[in-house]
Structures are given as structure tokens and as C-alpha cells.
Amino acid sequence: MSTTLDGRIALPADEAIVLHRSYWQATLHFCRREPLGAVGAVLVLIIAITGLSAELIAPYSPTANDFAAMTEAPSWTHWLGTDQFGRDLLSRIIYGARTALIVGLTSAIVGGFAGLVLGVASAYFGGRLDLVFQRIFDVVMAFPLIIMALAVVAIFGTGVHNVIVAITIPLIPRCARVVRSSALAIREIPYVDAARACGYSHSRIILRHMVPNVMAPFLIMLTAFVGQAILAEASLSYLGLGVQEPTPAWGLMLQGGAEEYASTAPWIAIFPGLAIALTVFGVSLFGDALRDVLDPKLRER
């Protein structure tokens, strides 16, 4: 495509195909081109369905203690064994999937969309506003995600809602920065000038003409964020600063007893660890494949 923009933004033919065919066709095309990504997507889908229908699937209540069966190894009655309080690990992992998904998806989506709008607006308005936004983003991004999240939890306290806030805030500038650089190039394309010449409002130009055209980098970021947010939630919960007992959460399951019984009852630590690893792995596989399909030029880096 012959435009004045730097090659990265030029619409790759494949993206046009993926985004303009029917969803079903696009999905088929994706699976054929990126089988590994499809595996990742299926993995994430299974975990999501498991988490959503936890009540139907889980064999026990995640909080029920069976004092007759404490730190029991995997068996036919408790497939993944029990912890030191006699709670069924499989049930806790199934319910934990729900917590991981709620925190991961909410943070990624809220943080992503806030970053999307801020990044595009920053590029569109330019000038002083852009300068101020850039500096604020830089300050927030100077801290690693988990440190920033720790600071937010320290201020607002623990619990699921605060964990979501804590993870969302550091994601915003990370998204805004990537989106802004794409939007800067979009702003120079004549269809944005045409929109301005038609006298459209700022919000219409940003939302209808610029945002849809930075979707490729945005979707790539969004999937990466889901993985990062799930990992961050697990880390915070492990540190005791995230989700609190008795809410089932994978990070929480790695804490306390899991360490104490690491050699005598290793299943207490292994299974939640596996759950975290598998989920993040699935999200990454899907995210990488999505990136390859939407933005082939990024792959060469």
C-alpha cells in the first residue's frame, strides 16, 4: 500500500482479510495459519468455561474442610488431593480460575481501553496535552508493574476490587504509549484530514476514525495484558497483598501451607502452579499468533 506513513501502520493485506471477512471465516483462517495460537485459544477457552461454570463442575465446595482427609495425596475421591485444611484442591483450582479470569480480564480490558483512548487522544490533540500525558505515563512506567501494583494495594488495601484497581493502573500507560505511537502516524493520513475538513467533533474523529485503525496493535497488547494481569494477581495474592482467604485464588494456594508441605505434600503447590503456568502459556500462545496475523511486520523484530 502506497502511503506516506511509516510501513508499520500501513494496513497489511492479511489484516484487511481477517477483519473484513465473516467471523467464522476469519476464525478458520486463523486456525489454519496459526495452529499453535489456536491451541492457546482453546486452552484459554477451556479455563474460562471451567471458571464460569465452577458451581456445576467442582466436585466439592472450595471452602469446605474435610478434617478426615487432610493433606491427602491425589486419589479417586480427591483427584488432585487436599490441602492441610482438608479442602479439595481440584475444586479450589476450578473456583480459582474464576478469580484469575475476573481479575485478569477486568484489569486488561479496563486498563487497555483507558490506555487506548488516552493514547489516541494524546496523539490527536498533540501539543501541551500530549507533553503532559507523556510525562505522567513515563513516571508510572518507571516502576515495574508489580511494584506499582504493590504501591496501589498499600494505599487502597487488599481484596479483589482493590487488586483489580492495582493492576489496572500500571497497565494504562503501557497501553497508551504503544497506541499513541500508532495513532501519531494515523493522524497524518488524509482520511483524518478529510474528517476534520468535514467538521466532525473531536470525539467522533478519535473514536470513529482513529481508534478503529489502531486496533491491530491494541488487540495484541490486550492479550498480553490478560497474561500479565493474571500473573500479577497470583503474585500479589502469594505475597498476601492480593485476594484474601477464603476466596479461592491460585496465588493464595501457593502461600503458607504449600511451602511448609513442599516435600511431604508437593501436590498442594504443584497443581495451582500448573494452573497459573498453563493459563499464562495459553494466553501467550494466542497473543503471539494474533500478533503474527494482525501485524506481520512486528514478527521480524
Binding site: 500500500m1 502506497s2 502511503t3 506516506t4 506513513l5 494496513l11 484487511a16 477483519l19 493520513i189 488524509p190 482520511y191 484530514d193 478529510a194 474528517a195 475538513a197 468535514c198 467538521g199 466532525y200 467533533s201 467522533r204 470513529r208 476514525h209 478503529p212 485503525n213 486496533m215
Partner: peptide
């Protein structure tokens, strides 16, 4: 009252919008 036609027919139309919507938009907005 004043409108514009650009040089590059590839970059002067929003690739995410259907032709009908591109033409209808100014009529609607105004």
C-alpha cells in the same frame, strides 16, 4: 461550503468504514 479531494485514493478513505457510511457520515453529522 469548502471541501477537499486528496491525491492518494488509498489513504484518503478510512479503511474500516464502508463506502456508504463514508459518504453518509457528513450528511448525518451536519
Amino acid at each position: 461550503r469548502i471541501q477537499v479531494i486528496f491525491q492518494d485514493p488509498y489513504s484518503s478513505l478510512n479503511p474500516r468504514m464502508k463506502v456508504g457510511d463514508i459518504i453518509a457520515e457528513p450528511i448525518k453529522v451536519h
